[in-house]
Design a protein around this nucleic acid. Sequence first.
DNA 1: AGCAATCA
DNA 2: TGATTGCT
Length: 884
Amino acid sequence: MPSSKLVLIDGNSILYRAFFALPPLTARDGTPTNAVYGFTTMLLRLLSDENPTHLAVAFDKSKVTFRHADFAAYKGTRQETPDELVQQFPLARRTLEALSIPMIEIDQYEADDVIGTLAKRAAEAGFEVRVVSGDKDLLQLVDSHVHVLLTRKGITEMEHFDEQAVAQRYPGLKPAQVIDLKGLMGDPSDNIPGVPGVGEKTALKLLASFGTVEGVYEHLKEVQGQKLRERLEQHRDDAFLSKRLATIACDAPVEVDLDSLRYEGPDPARALAWFRELDFRSLVDKISEEMSHDSTSPQPSAEPGRPSTAWDGFAYDVIEDVQAWREAVSAFNEPVGVMMDFAHPDYHVAEIRGMAVAAPKRAYYIRFGERLELSDVRPWLVSERPKVAFDLKSMAFALDAHGIGLTPECGWQDVKLAAYLLNPQDGDVELSEVFARERGQELPPREDATREKWLAYTASHLPPLFESLAYTIRMQEMERLYQEVELPLAFVLAKMEITGFYVNREKLQAFGEGLTERIERITQEIYELAGTSFNLNSPKQLGEILFDKLGLPALKKTKTGYSTSADVLEKLAPMHEIVQKILDYRMLAKLQSTYVEGLLKVIRRETGRVHTRFHQTLTATGRLSSSEPNLQNIPIRLEEGRRLRQVFEPTYKDWVIFAADYSQIELRILAHLSGDEALIDAFRHDMDIHTRTAADVFEVPPEQVTSLMRRQAKAVNFGIVYGISDFGLSQNLNIPQKEAKRFIENYFEKFPGVKRYMDEIVRQARERGYVTTLMNRRRYLPDIHSRNYQMRSFAERTAMNTPIQGSAADLIKLAMVRIDRAMRDAQMDARMLLQVHDELIFECPKDELPALEVLVRDNMENAMTLSVPLKVDTAHGPTWYDAK
DNA sequence: AGCAATCA
DNA sequence: TGATTGCT
């Protein structure tokens, strides 16, 4: 049996060294991390190089120690520890916690003393001991079983000192004489005086002759050199004091049992989660690599028939009959990873070939066929047994097509959702990207030939992956957002996608035919006015016609040429009748191509409905997005486009479309977040907020607010929500930037709480590197420190906008989850169809309308309690158009 | 501010 | 990929 090996680390010394040895380094949130980084890399290096059986890190507990009783000025010349280092001590402690490494500190004693005491005890108990520090004083501890590792220039480079190495570094010196050396030399860094004029050379010579400080003074007369003798005589007390100060107390009251320092290796999930939080990317890679190879850390066994973490040797069993399935699944008593084997890359094509079910130590591929059907695994899929998936919404969608309805109560967790909450800026990511980011592991390529193995392999990794994500989510206080909002919402969204929205194809085609006629007519008119035909859809050709041929002024340019955007064309409209026709053409063409043709393409033949996809893990703010088709941008502003909504009908004849939207949700959230009294007051009195803003900003009574004033105030309110810039507002209102600036200044004067909030949130973003929403959804803003004005300003506006937009997203998502549950509880037939950021669209039988209205309004208005009331407007009608 | 779709 | 337009 190999002997026990104890590694003792001088935490303070290493952190101090690391801080000054490494360039500045910060986490995403701006916290300095260079010292912790060095500390951690050193720890990991030690673990792999020394392979300790026992391990501890010692810290100084208090500034005042027993040494100060002896010499008040001890360490008196030390500079104040820099703030950037002070901040890192708690991080170092949490690092040790994450790595499960014991920490020791004792009142009145320094880390040295703890180390000396433990080293001595351990050596007596037959341990090999390694002491790690940056402080040469520790060399006094060296003996045949205690070696000292001193950090070299960097931090991971170590110089190994045994007795021989000490004698080499200080010619002829024994480790025990280190204190005598220091007694004579002193140590300016600790304000230990020593004997002035005695340096290392002289001290070593003296000690070679007389052994100790005591020996020197006993034989003072024999010392060569009168001046030296005089100095020694004069500073006798200093010499003895210095020796005492340098002497490590090997009898400190350390009430720690050596057994309790036994080191079993870190918990990989905790360690990785913590390193991820610190943004130690290279360490995340490194440690996951080490853990998958290091035989001392807990690993799945590599026995025959059992999976190892490595792809090549990965083994899994194929299950094809009910009996084997039951046996396999009943043997799991831990969270199980599940990967569905879709026959098609699009989950809306809900064909399922099989599924992988695996934990780190056992993996199966379940092949569906005659002897085992999906319905056989249904009880397990809907049970409360803990199961981990990647993209639950797609599973819930596909399984529903096979009569298996997953609910939030079914014991599922979702790696994709968890990963999104931790890094929303990455958008919709693949499983392989999460693996790469969280574990530093490359996933093998997904190939047809190894499909089943790939699924089993990845499934086996899902549970630990989820564990580490969940740990960080808890640390960032997003557990409620995950458990009570995003996770249950996935099931709600799956249901909405499954339901779809009925589209009256004939109406839509007729609408399109009307458009075609108008487009043809207007195209001819434009060609006549231009005197030539050209591609109206090409901004380049259009620009040539307008600005070169017709000689209209080019008001704005783009990177590639003239700008022909709507705001430019609107200014040119009075100058030539072709311009308005082009604007009309643009509108009609948009309606035709995007909405009529686009919608017709995605109506499902079988259902006559469109089944949009809601992306729950895409936006940086927490909003949903919608695609194929995007039902979140169906026209409404202009009547001609709005009519398109007439093609969206209820499923059944006697049903209606019901819509409920939050009134001024973002400004209400701003009122709450900022605590601005005027804004809060306005909403408590349910005023028309734009009129009220106009009255304040233009200093007139509300009755005298003109429509222009209200329009301008409305733009200011928008600007405020988006994080105002005078440039942006001037563009919006088509006014000089100076005037826009005055509007904003006026606004902030009337709403000082808003001003304070905006300043504070930007300050917070700078300090922490991120901003948060009401439910602690987080968004990192690394550009907030950019030297580039544009990028920095953008980050600042994002800092102002994200808490507002993101909190609104939190709010409506929470409402959706509750509404879904309430509708199920009440066994209603009504269905939620769409979410459009601040509104929800339903279809329901006419007779359910009153109950649905109450239920929806209640859950939306009371989703959260803010300092202003939440107001919901509702409407209904025979089509979406009529629900206004 | 945040998205998606279309076209060249 | 960029320009444009649709939505909140």
